[in-house]
Every structure is written in C-alpha cells, then in structure tokens.
Design a protein around this nucleic acid. Structure first.
Lengths: 228, 228
DNA sequence: TAGTGGTCTAGACCACGAG
DNA sequence: TCGTGGTCTAGACCACTAG
C-alpha cells in the first residue's frame, strides 16, 4: 500500500489506526522518529500531523513519555463566534437594528466584577435590538467603558462592528447559558414571558483595559453549531 | 529593542502591532519573507506564528494576495467539550447516575435524519439521569445504533464513557440551544415545568456508520465557558 | 541522565489565485 | 504569469521529564 504523503494524509492514517483499534485509548503510539521512518518522510512532517491531533484532543503528548491516544473523552471543538449581522444575512434575511435606550450608570455587581472595575465606577449602557426581516432575533445589553476609547461611538452604526474596527484585536471570554425571558425581554423579543432564551455573554479587554461586557439574549429557536 | 525570538514571541509581536493599530483591520501586513528578514529568523518561524493567528481568526491569508488583518469580527474559540462526570468531580461533588429507562423503538424523524437512517429503522434508546451529590444535574436521552457495536454495552457503567473506550475516535457534530423543560424533564431534574434548560445535542459517526445521537438537558444554572 | 517531543534553520519545490 | 503562502527536508539543538 502506498504510504501516506504529507501531514494531512499522515493525520488521516493515524486516525484510521485509532478507529481500527490498532492503537487503543491510553496506549502509547510509536515515536515521531519511528513513524517518520515507517512513512518515509521527515520527522517534522510527522510532528505536524501529531501536533494537530493533540490540538484536537485526540492525542496526548509529553516529552520523554511519548504520545498516547487520549483516554479522557474530552474533545476540543473550534467554535466560530457568530456575528449577528452575518448570521442574519447568511440566512438570506435583511439585517437591521434599533437602539432601545442608552444611559450612564453604575453596572450591577456581576458586570463590574467581570470587568474588574472599582465599585461605584460608572459605565455607559446601550441596549440594542437586532432584527431579521424586521423581526427581533436578539436583544443586546452592552456595558461600555468609554474612558478607554479614543473617540465616542457614532449613533448610526452597529456598536459591535464599530468597536471591532476601532479597538481592533482584544482578548476576552465567552459563556453560554439558558435563561427564562423576563417580562421586559419577552416584550422586546415578541415572545411569551418565561420563554427559554439562549444567552451569550462576552467580556473583552484590550491589553489590560476592560472594554466592554455584552449580554445577548437570542430569540427562541436559536442554535449554535460546531463540528468535532 | 531585542527582536522577538521564537514563533510565540513573533505571534505576540504581531498582536501588539494590531493592537497598536500599526496594522489596521483589512490592511495587508508584510510578507513572510519580509518579516523573517526584519526579525532575523527563518521564514518557517514566521509562517508558524502567522498560521496560528489565522487559525484563531485574527488574520486572513491567501496565496498571492498576502496576509490581512481580519475585518469581520468572526473570532474562533476552542471549546472543551465537557464530560459530565469530570465536570461534577471538578466541582468537588460526588458523581453518580441512574438509568431511567431503556427501550427499542423507532426514533423520532429529527433523530433519524441526523443519523442518516432509513425510515422505520429501530434503535435502542437509553435515558439516564446524571447526579452531583445525589441531585440531578443533567438528563441524557441517547439513541444508540447497536448494530454497529462489537458487543452490547454493560449496564453498570456510564454509557458515554463505555462508548468512548469501545468505539474510540469518532467524528461528530454538536449543537447548543435553550429549551423549556417539559413536564417529564422538570420532574426528573427537580425543577419547575417550563424552566429554561441548556441543551447540548451531539451526533457521532465512526467512519461512515452512525453510532449515536445524544441530547443532554442541563439543570438550570448550567454555563458553558471558553476564552478567545 | 537519557529519551522524547518542541523548535529552529536554510533551502527547495509546489499550489493557488490575483491581475 | 508570477508573487505569495503551504509544505517538505535533513539536520541540529533545546526543554522537559520519566525512571
């Protein structure tokens, strides 16, 4: 049989051997050097293939100990964090948004803690409704640290997209959960009170400075997908 | 200033330049060759750094066109797909589970479609309640294609973990959503009917053969986190 | 301390795709 | 067409860690 060529074919071959149970969970597989000899390629090529599989959670690698097939069924998936406008347009619908209200206030303790703020510090709060073909798809509740921004945001664009262009790359964390719609949310999202909403919460920093904390409540039916 | 050394320092330097807006969203950055010359390293080292950033959604790369700072704020996050037992034990609680019922039946159309089954084909269905310190944390509803398994599963272990050890690596897809608890689910999870539940649905194949489709309904308060 | 993975180099050729 | 990223090689040295 023709040996695998290129790191992608090697990755596929390794997966095949794991699937066929030639290499069982917890077992140590041959070293990079041995595999390179078997496949007739450079060690760097094998290394690349195994590194990708380790990144996906399929293999566990440690110096000196070697490479093992992962025992714990912890798989890693990559998730494309969605942008509402692109999601809506991807479904062939017209995107729109409406600013519900805007205020300066002291954020609730949970938000202040997430952003690492001193108690009592005031932030700007924007609530925006995102629309698909005129119907609400998500309610955005954003707390924004205007102090760190070079200029105030304009009123006529999506705050999210303006931020991305202005503050550029940021680090952050994201969490997903399910919550029942409050009466207020239900009214805005045109859904029954108490409906199960999919919630994404994102907090971002630029370097050390906390920028913004966003809570998105998605209208019922929302679904986040990925592949393992 | 000392030039960055190693692909990780180069990655950090690139991020710094994006953060400082030396390189703006949409702009083309220097070629690998130019950066290698600037940093005094091999092109492969620059390539590695830029590849990682492209994988994270920070850069967009195309042959001939070069490398640009990503304009669309689509970030990619890696998600550790949780294993309930490990999550529970990680919180310092005692893990347990209880088999609710088991049957052979024709799955609902949605499940059959996800698994790519012929209409009318029967599968085994297991419903399991996962417990943390004796209290329910998640309700598992699993449809299992016993025909493709080498041996029937034992009754006394977690079905999920047995599957992982037996079928080894599988491909699959995952989706997340929010749903209101049905009366049945509410009873089992000891929560009010209609409560907002976080739902994960996973379908897996081993090669071409569909193995299993699982729906996990998490008790209220569940939260899935990741970092960008 | 020795074995294994992690990384770097200098060079080469290839594949894609913008102009 | 030809510039750019994508990959491979053969070799080298380093970093971590199991025994």
């Amino acid at each position: 049989m023709r040996p695998p060529q290129g790191w992608e074919e090697i990755r596929a071959e390794v997966l095949r051997r794991i699937d066929r149970r030639d290499w069982r969970p917890g077992a140590t597989i041959p070293t990079e050097e041995q595999l390179a000899a078997e496949f007739g390629c450079a060690r760097a090529t094998v290394s690349r293939a195994l590194r990708e599989l380790a990144g996906a959670g399929v293999l566990e690698r440690r110096r000196k100990a070697g490479t093992r097939v992962a025992t714990h069924p912890v798989r890693k998936a990559t998730l494309d964090i969605p942008v509402i406008r692109l999601e809506v347009e991807g479904r062939g619908q017209a995107y729109g948004f409406r600013l519900i209200d805007r205020a300066t206030a002291v954020p609730p303790p949970a938000v202040a803690a997430r952003l690492g703020l001193a108690p009592g510090q005031r932030l700007d709060r924007f609530r925006t409704l995102h629309l698909a073909d005129g119907r609400p798809t998500a309610l955005e509740d954003r707390w924004l640290n205007l102090a760190v921004l070079p200029e105030p945001p304009p009123a006529d664009v999506s705050l999210n997209e303006w931020l991305v262009k202005t503050v550029a790359y940021t680090y952050g964390d994201i969490s997903f959960s399910a919550e029942a719609a409050t009466p207020d949310e239900a009214l805005l999202l045109e859904t029954p009170a108490g409906a199960a909403l999919f919630i994404t919460e994102r907090t971002t920093w630029a370097g050390e400075a906390p920028i913004t904390s966003v809570r998105l409540a998605h209208a019922p039916g929302y679904r986040l997908r990925t592949v393992v």
